[in-house]
Amino acid sequence: MIFNDIMSAKGGSAWGGKKYWVIFKNKLQASFAYRVNFFASFIAEGLSLVIIVYLWLSIYHQGGKIGNYTLGGLILYFIISKFINLTVRSYDAARYVGEIIRLGDFNNYLLKPLSFFGHTVAYFSAVITYNLIIFSILFSPLLFFGKIEFTIVNLFYFFISLIIAFFLNFLFYYAVGISSFFFGYIAGLNFMMWGINSFFSGNLIPIDLFPKYLVTINNFLPFKYMVFVPISIITNKYTENEIFLNLFFGLSWVLILVIFTNVLYKKGIKKYEAYSS
């Protein structure tokens, strides 16, 4: 019932799952058909991982000790962080949504019995499903050779945290995208948010290495649930209680962002002027 309300409030009629399933299926098929960009992303992230590993090797080489991290632990952290980047992070959502609004293609969603939010969720769920299938295969040797002592229960919690991370990322960039109602072109906002997100999610440096005041600030923000928390779960840094608490807070942030994007969307649609035919 609540879901029906959200879907219809976000620009469509009542929930009709079949049409979103078709969008999901089409995008998934398209992802399997166009593989060049996918492999390019893989190479790009791989290269960036090599450099990051070298950076930290160089630090340890000089006898530096980084918090409670061993060199192996830190490298493992960045490998899992790359996995999360390649699978559940949806930077493109902002550009995708922003361009639909800016170029006037949004008119379609006003006229057709299709929720804009539902369409975008289905579209990016397909992207993420494809990435998860392929990269889980590519990264799976790590589970055996990466000396990660995990249990099936941990793997399950990790999977749940990845789903939360996906929705947090998606909603975050979706909110940036629908800001196009107010700013028109949102490349600047997207660039700024991407920087903030990368830094505070723990993508560049593990959050527990931040100065105390930054750790405190970050505890009141949703970013750590996007990268740092999933990594901490799979690398056994949390007790079961801590896992539950973090999943709960992550989920709460998802709810907050759903409400926030809903309000933003409703305000935005009042400002929207249809340019195209």
Binding site: F183, G184, Y185, A187, G188, L189, F191, M192
Partner: peptide, 14 residues
């Protein structure tokens, strides 16, 4: 670019 002044300033702040 100045057709979208908000974006211009946000990019600068970014």
């Amino acid at each position: 670019r100045m057709a979208y002044p908000g974006n211009f300033y946000l990019m600068a702040i970014g």
